[in-house]
């Protein structure tokens, strides 16, 4: 690599890293006294609890529903597959507010689907279930993408070998496909969970902001910052950043051995 080009790449990398570090410093470098005060008044912890509960439930549902979908998309050929793939990817490209509005119309009691859900006793507007729905809708494509790529990378000879060894498709799915897609499933789960944890627009549209019930960390940061309570907003932002940071470090550590094995 010519020295000028190399120096240019290194300089850009350094500048970008500095920019991210300086921007995040404002979140992480909250004075301990301010943080202690904001956390001890008891208004942040319920928000953290709601956020963790709903985002983890959304990620678990994404894993449950997204794994068979990823399998079909990775390993089956059928008419209209490209259309289905585009449709399932759409929430990633869609502005969260648009996704939220679409969900709001879908589950509103005045809509046919909403009235059916209401009759079944499932109330999604201004409830935690609504938060989970919004987070799942927005974050599911991240899980499907990661697992689909992992399953697609499995050599076709392995499921073929399983078939000629008298294994049914279901047995092959659970004993060959899933274990070999483990890394994709873990990283997909984490990506999906962190996306759900940070979800704002769609959640606000469907579940609103009822303190202690539907107030999630991103919504709390927004409402508290816009109402001038920067200390409380900072504490909520600190919690969200710490959760994201710890998750990222955990993921890197989890895959460290695999990366080293591949290098070797």
């Amino acid at each position: 690599m010519p020295l000028g080009f190399k120096s240019c790449c290194v300089a850009i990398t350094a500048l970008l890293s500095l920019f991210v570090a300086v921007a995040l410093c404002n979140v992480f470098l909250v004075s301990p006294a301010t943080l202690r005060h904001a956390l001890s008044d008891g208004s942040v912890w319920p928000v953290v609890k709601v956020s963790l509960e709903t985002s983890l439930l959304a990620a678990c549902l994404a894993m449950l529903l997204g794994t068979p979908v990823a399998y079909v998309l990775a390993r089956k050929t059928f008419f209209g597959k490209a259309a289905v793939e585009t449709l399932l990817d759409l929430p990633v490209a869609l502005p969260p507010m648009v996704a939220g509005l679409a969900l709001l119309i879908l589950v509103s009691p005045s809509s046919p689907t909403g009235s059916v859900l209401a009759k079944a006793g499932l109330h999604l507007i201004f409830t935690k279930a609504g938060i989970v729905l919004a987070q799942l809708f927005v974050a599911l494509p991240f899980y499907i993408r990661a697992v689909r790529s992992a399953m697609f990378a499995i050599p076709p000879s392995l499921p073929a070998a399983a078939a000629v060894l008298r294994a049914t498709e279901a047995y092959t799915f659970f004993h060959v496909i899933l274990p070999l897609s483990r890394e994709g499933m873990i990283s997909g789960f984490v990506m999906c969970w962190t996306r759900a944890l940070g979800e704002f627009g769609a959640t606000a549209m469907v579940a609103g902001c009822i303190p202690g019930v539907t107030e999630t960390l991103p919504i709390a940061i927004y409402t508290r910052a816009t109402s001038g309570d920067l200390a409380s907003a900072g504490a909520a932002a600190f919690c969200l950043a710490v959760i994201s940071f710890v998750t990222l470090i955990g993921l890197r550590l989890a895959f460290k051995d695999t990366a080293q094995r591949r290098k070797a």
Partner: peptide, 20 residues
Amino acid sequence: VAPEKRPVTLVFQRHALFPH
């Protein structure tokens, strides 16, 4: 008849052993 129901098995050129 589906492969898993045939009294036939196949040894692949590149082994196709399950790596896990």
